[in-house]
Each structure stands twice: as C-alpha cells, then as structure tokens.
Nucleic acid binder design. Structure first.
Length: 635
DNA sequence: GTTAGGG
DNA sequence: CCCTAAC
C-alpha cells in the first residue's frame, strides 16, 4: 500500500500512524507564553499608597480631617511620601493654582543633578492650558528604588536627562485616566473635590503633539520636528493603567488610547457599559474574582464594545487622506471666491495611536516585536477613521470646504493634524453586561464612575510618531525564522538586549508609547487580546502541508506542524488543521467557487487523495478497535 | 497540550 | 481564524 501510494502520488509514502504521541510531553513545542512578572512597586503604587494613607489619616484623625489649609495638605503629602520612601528625603513640591485653593499638584521627586525636575511638567502651557485643574503627583525616576523606573523611564531630549514622570491627575483629562481609577489615589484626589465636577474640557495642552505629525509642509527630519518645533514640550509618561487592575496587566490595545479630539464631549465613553472598577476596588479581591471567573480572551471586538463612543462625526474615510489628495480635497464650492486654489497636503505619517505593551523581562526581542506587531496590526486592521484637527480643534463638519475651515490658508503652520480614531460604528456597540466578567458588582460604590473615562485622553504628550510599521508581508516562508509576520524593525530596538526593561528605557528611541506597565498579576486574558491577522496560506505552504499530511495523515496536526511548519511560528497546528479542512473543501468545490490565491489543481488532487486515504485508514483503525473490544467482551 | 469540529 | 468540548 505504501509503495502503491508512492507511485500514485509521487511522494515518500504514507506513514502508518505510530502509537500516537508516546513522548509528546518531551517534544519541543513553541510557546508564546510569557512568564509572570515580579511584583514591583512602582511610582504609581507609592503615590497610591501615599494617597491612601492620606485618606486614612484624613478619615481617622480629627486633626487631619481639619487639614484645610494648603500648608497642611502639603505637609501631609510630604510626610507621607517621606514615610513611604523609607525616610529618604524626597522633594515634595506643591503647586497651587491661581484659581482656587482646591486644585493642587504635588510633585514627588528627588533632585536630579542635571536639571530641574518639575518644571518640565508645566512647560509650554499654551494659551488654553489650565494647569490648575491638576491635582496630581509627579515623581521623577529617582524618587525611590522601589519605583519601577526602568520601565517607565523616558528620555527627555530637551534637557538631556532621563526622567520618568508619573502623573496622576484629576484634571478633566486624567480623571479618565485609569490611573486615577485603578489606583487608590483617593487621598490625593480627594484633596480636590471640586475637580470632580469638571469633565467637559480638556486643555489643549494635554495634547500638544497630537496634530503634529501630519503637516502641510514636510519637515526636515523627525528629530527636528519633534524636538525643535516645540521645544517647550516635555514628554510625559502617564502611566496608562487601565481602569481594571487586572486589565492593565495585559497588553492594552491602543484603541483604548486613541489620541482623539481635544474635547471630551466629543468622545464620551459610556461608563455603564464599561467594566470599570472603582478606584479603591480591592486588588486582591478583584484578582480572585477574575481568576475564578471564567475569563474569555479579551478580544479586540469586545474591547471596542466596551467603549461606547458617541461621536457625532461622520466617518472620514481614509481614502480622503492620501499622498495625492488633491483629487478629493479641493475646495470647489466656495462661491464667493472667484478662483479656488488647489490645496496640497502632504501627510508625512499618521500617528499611530499609543501602544501599551507589556512583556516580562525575560521576553525576547522577538516576542516583543511580535507583540508590537500584533498591537499595531490590530490597530491598523481595525475599523479606522480619520479625524482632522485644525488649531487643535476637531473639524467636525465634513461638508465644509477647506477654505471654509481655514485649512487652505493655514498650510504653513503645524496647526493641521490628522489622527486615527476607532470607527464609532465599531465602537458604539453596547456591551451586554453578561458578557463582561469585569462588570462591577452592583453594590460597589463607584465614586469616580461618573467620570466618563476617556482612554483617548490619557495620552498627554507623545510627540514622536511611532515608527510606521512595515505592513509589507515578508512572504509566507514556511521557514521564516522570526515569524513571517511583518517585523517592526523600525523600532530600532537594541537587539542585543533581551531585557524588556531596556526596550522602553532606550532613550534614543521614541518608544515612550511602549510604556511597560509594571505587572503584578497576569491573567490569561492578558495574553490574547486581539484576533490574529489573517494570513492566507501560500501555495508553498499548501504544498508543504499537503506533503506533511500525506506522510503523517490527518489527525496528527502537531506532528505536521513540527515537521513542516516548525519555524512558522504563526502557523499553529490548529491553523494547519483548519487549512486542511478548507483545502478539502476547496478541492471539492468547483474552481469557479474558489476564492483567493488559486491552489494548483495538482495539489488539490493530492489533498483529496490523501484525505480519502487517511479517512479510510481511520475507519479501518476504528473497525479494528471495535473488533478488538468486541473480542474482549466475548472473552 | 492536542484533536476535532462547529462557528 | 476563533472557540470549545473532549481527551
């Protein structure tokens, strides 16, 4: 039989299945699991702790409860920070605003020799800026060794010193920041109760860079554009903790952190649909609960579902924005002008929404690349629309001409910007409460829950564009060593480093968007975030698959994988099995019904033959077993 | 962890 | 490609 088949199909012959998988466990298998991360106390935790203690003190001590003056508050904060820093003297600075005594920011820091630490935080306020809305704590990287500074360090190009800024604010923007929600910051936050009423305005300064990357005129280079055109802006790294304690563990889809309109009312996130836990939600409890719950992978779709975005804008199709946009963007219906001029837009790059990725320190660079790629492709592959900003304001009326909006007159400035946004049609689907294991228990008070979280607003100032990912497929080489997925080599990540901490600490690389959130608990869900991108099988892959199945038969997909696709990390044995399924189906249908890259008929024939053969074998095997069992029963 | 099959 | 049951 074997020989016959060899003659018939021109391959090495079928392999009678051996006793299946005797030493399966000893075989090498590709693993994408990430190891859990050590518990590390980060600045956030310190600040949260301080805040919590402050709150406690405030509640328990009558003295503290009368802590009405700024001085008292300041002293309390300072004291708490010092305590937390184990006696080390940290620089605690309070800045009160002019508007009212209610708003105050606290900086927790340690003097950095090269440069002043705090002022950058307030740099370049801009005309519309309203710093006084902040009640925040900021810590520089050196504040304490317990800070997870390595992961959050950001190069401050402007000053040449490294610093990590942890901002925990309660301004209208950061109130939506999960940091505020997830952390026990109520102490600090509660210092300013009035701020809770503010949620309608986001100071433009919170997004000083969001429209910077797309300009009318090309810039000399990225460096100059990011560093010099707005020298007053300092990169800040707001710890992008998702609202859920556990959810910050996972790789966060950037869709949650779109840089979007500066006006919050334009992007309202329906709180009731989102599984946010209150700021003080007990982490342990939540973890337990989440662990015990049956947690389905938090898929991209569901992710979007969680965020109810009510955006009145009609979607601007991305086709409208291209390198040769004259065709569609000419303002030609503005009658008062005798002659209309062509407006030429050069969009150097779109700002890819901020990405937050987590990897254990032990993760390889390759896995980082894959993770980044997954995140990027998830974004780019998702439903996107383009948002247009002019002078920091979102241009909402799609029917206005460029002339009317002033875009055409303003083409020498940086005031025009584009951004990518999630498509409301995708994002507005309400989430059924049953679908979310994260929904708050009904009885749990949610002091902050009325602030619509605005994930897109979290991004404060990422001036540097994330390097455009190479979406170009490198082909479906079965032997591709590093995953045939497009490799984000533009990340310029130091390949010699396998420590993921270094990846975010590399100052020369604009990877602050890759902030690695310190992880305390990882759930399984954290691994699977989005649907994998579709990667059609190439003919070569099909060939390899067919060959392997001819040899090994159906039903030994793991072996098929190891045999023919061992180096194609993106092809799981389930993929191969599925592909075989579709191949069989494809072979059975008429060629007219087939879609995609045509598979040579010869291969399809082999598929059918092999499938028939192995089906027969399976049947025979079953028959044998049946007979054997019957014999056993008879005896 | 693999396999099989429905979605 | 995802999900899940069954092993």
């Amino acid at each position: 039989m074997v020989l016959q088949n060899r003659l018939e199909y021109g391959f090495n012959g079928y392999q009678v299945p051996a006793t299946p998988r005797a030493s399966r466990s000893t075989r090498r298998r590709s693993s994408f699991k990430k190891k859990p991360e050590d518990n590390q106390m980060c600045a956030f935790d310190l600040l949260a702790t301080v805040a919590g203690k402050l709150l406690l003190e405030k509640e328990s001590s009558p003295m503290s409860s009368n802590m009405s003056s700024d001085k008292d508050q300041y002293a309390a904060v300072k004291h708490a920070v010092k305590k937390e820093c184990q006696g080390e003297d940290k620089l605690v600075k309070a800045e009160a605003c002019d508007q009212g005594s209610c708003d105050r920011r606290y900086f927790v820091s340690e003097p950095v020799s090269q440069a002043p630490i705090n002022h950058s935080y307030r740099e370049s306020p801009g005309p519309e800026n309203d710093h006084c809305r902040f009640t925040s704590a900021v810590a520089t990287s050196n504040c304490t060794e317990r800070f997870d500074t390595q992961k959050l360090i950001v190069k401050d190009k402007l000053h040449g010193n490294e610093k990590a800024l942890f901002g925990i604010g309660t301004d209208s923007c950061s109130l939506r920041d999960p940091v505020v929600r997830a952390g026990k910051l109520s102490g600090l936050v509660s210092l300013d109760s009035s701020v809770q009423e503010r949620e309608e305005h986001v100071p433009r300064s919170s997004f000083p860079g969001s429209w910077d990357d797309v300009n009318f005129v090309s810039k000399d280079d990225d460096e100059s554009s990011s560093g010099c055109t707005h020298p007053s802006i300092t990169k800040k790294l707001f710890r992008p903790t998702p609202r859920l304690g556990d959810r910050r563990i996972r790789k966060v889809l950037a869709s949650k952190y779109w840089k979007v309109a500066p006006k919050l009312k334009d992007v309202t996130f329906s709180n009731t649909n989102v599984d946010f836990k209150p700021a003080y939600w007990n982490r342990k409890n939540s973890y337990k609960r989440l662990r015990s719950d049956r947690n389905y992978p938090f898929k991209k779709r569901k992710f979007f579902d969680c965020i109810s975005v009510s955006n009145s804008d009609e979607g601007i199709s991305s086709e409208c924005v291209s390198d040769a946009p004259e065709k569609g963007i000419i303002g030609d219906d503005f009658g008062s002008h005798p002659k209309t001029h062509e407006v030429k837009l050069r969009i150097k790059s779109f700002r890819v929404p901020e990405l937050f990725i987590e990897l254990p320190e032990t993760a390889t660079v390759g896995s980082l690349k894959r993770t980044v790629m997954e995140a990027v492709t998830a974004i780019l592959g998702g439903e996107l629309r383009v948002g247009v900003f002019l002078q920091g304001k979102k241009v909402r009326d799609d029917n206005k001409t460029l002339l009317q909006t002033g875009i055409s007159q303003d083409n020498q400035s940086d005031s025009l910007g584009f951004c990518l946004e999630p498509n409301p049609s995708q994002a507005s689907k309400p989430l059924c409460p049953e679908e979310s294991p994260f929904l708050l228990p009904c009885g749990v008070p949610q002091p902050l829950s009325r602030y619509p979280p605005a994930p897109g607003m979290i991004q404060q100032d990422t001036r540097n564009v994330m390097p455009e990912p190479r979406v170009a497929n490198t082909g479906n080489s079965i032997d591709s060593d590093h995953d045939s997925a497009p490799s984000p080599t533009d990340m310029s990540v130091d390949k010699s480093t396998t420590d993921s901490r270094a990846l975010v600490a590399v100052p020369s690389v604009n990877v602050e968007t890759l902030a690695v959130v310190p992880v305390h608990r990882k759930s399984k869900r954290s691994e699977v975030v989005q649907r994998r991108i579709r990667r059609p099988f190439s003919v070569a892959e099909v060939e390899a698959l067919v060959q392997a199945v001819e040899k090994l038969g159906t039903g030994r997909w793991r072996d098929v994988k190891l045999r023919a696709f061992d180096n194609a990390k993106h092809r799981t044995y389930v993929d191969l099995k599925d592909k075989w399924k579709t191949l069989v189906h494809t072979a059975r249908i008429s060629p007219q019904q087939r879609r995609g890259e045509p598979v040579p008929q010869e291969l399809l024939d082999r598929v059918l033959t092999a499938h028939a053969y192995w089906s027969q074998q399976q049947a025979k095997q079953q028959l044998k077993q049946q007979q054997q069992s019957e014999n056993c029963l008879l005896l």
